[in-house]
């Protein structure tokens, strides 16, 4: 059976019809103004968070007690906080962690969701029924409350946060993957692979998952903002990222705590909020644009 994989590869290429998934998607993506705008904003935010802190003349830890709570100025474009720290630097540094949480937790949710959905869709029958019943049941649970319990009881470390947030978000992904799986499994190229004696594992990873990449990527793009919001939510409650690290949620929480009727330091809440909002906006835009570009139903139609 050593020749089998090559034959199925050929078969698959013929079905795709010469235009590869990526070049095809890239062509359509370039036409979507929405996706380009979203992607551009996202790149700017990522680069600014990575490079920005090196360019500002302040560090996020250094306090300047003579310049507490200054409104935005040329020296401090985003103002200073209660301890006289430069808010621009803190927002940029916070971006690193917020973006990292978004990415890692999304990867966790991808791993769980794709595996769960693939197995359910591929096995079918009773296994599928049982696995999807579990998903249905989990859907009706207030998951964030468990995460709050988990983080509050087991201590607040970053790894746990990544895992917990990823574990909350896999349900929809598993449903999408399962649906795709059931559709694809019935197609001729999969039957051909089965007939040639290719192992289940290889069929799933080599033939089925690559064909589902479109919906998976699109949904993953939309998972990132959801996870980032949840991280911000937990950090706001004091259960997420812990000082001296900062994230946009934590900065917003600090800002909200500082507000009193006599002292409204609006910049403490506005700038972290803007950074987070802009990123969420870009990711949503990119996700919508990607959906148009990668939806397999639109493939080879123009």
């Amino acid at each position: 059976m050593s020749a089998a994989p090559q034959e199925t590869d050929l078969l698959q290429e013929q079905l795709v019809g010469g235009s590869s998934f990526w070049s095809d998607a890239w062509k359509r993506l370039k036409k979507s103004r929405q996706a380009i705008v979203g992607g551009a904003i996202l790149i700017i935010v990522v680069v600014a968070s990575l490079v920005g802190p090196f360019l500002t003349p302040y560090s996020q830890e250094v306090q300047d007690l003579e310049r507490q709570l200054e409104p935005p100025s040329w020296d401090h474009p985003f103002g200073t906080d209660l301890a006289g720290r430069d808010m621009l630097t803190r927002v940029l540094m916070g971006g690193r962690l917020s973006l990292a949480v978004g990415m890692v937790a999304t990867l966790v949710s991808l791993l769980i969701g794709v595996t769960w959905g693939s197995v359910a869709g591929f096995k079918g029958g009773n296994v599928d029924n049982a696995m999807m019943r579990v998903v249905d049941m989990l859907y009706s649970l207030p998951f964030m409350f468990f995460v709050i319990l988990l983080v509050a009881f087991l201590g607040r470390n970053l790894l746990l946060l990544f895992l917990a947030l990823g574990a909350v978000q896999w349900l929809t992904m598993s449903r999408i993957v399962r649906g795709q799986m059931i559709q694809l499994r019935a197609q001729e190229f999969v039957q051909a692979a089965v007939a040639l004696g290719v192992s289940n594992r290889r069929i799933i990873f080599r033939h089925l998952i690559p064909n589902m990449l479109g919906p998976i990527i699109v949904y993953a793009t939309l998972t990132v903002p959801a996870v980032m919001l949840e991280e911000a939510f937990l950090s706001f409650l004091g259960l997420g990222v812990q000082p001296p690290n900062s994230s946009w949620g934590l900065l917003a929480a600090d800002g909200a705590k500082t507000i009193t009727a006599l002292r409204t330091a609006w910049w403490l809440i506005l700038f972290p909020g803007l950074a987070l909002g802009l990123t969420l906006f870009a990711l949503n835009f990119l996700g919508d644009g990607l959906r148009d570009a990668l939806d397999p139903k639109l493939k080879n139609q123009d």
């Binding site: 911000a232 917003a252 507000i259 409204t264 972290p272 909020g273």
Partner: peptide
């Protein structure tokens, strides 16, 4: 609507307080 989706409630709330209550 898109704007509404992108502004988290913990940002909207304090900003509303600053603007409507204190302002």
């Amino acid at each position: 609507a898109l704007l509404g989706i992108c502004i988290p409630n913990f940002v909207l709330g304090p900003l509303l307080i600053i603007l409507v209550s204190f302002g």
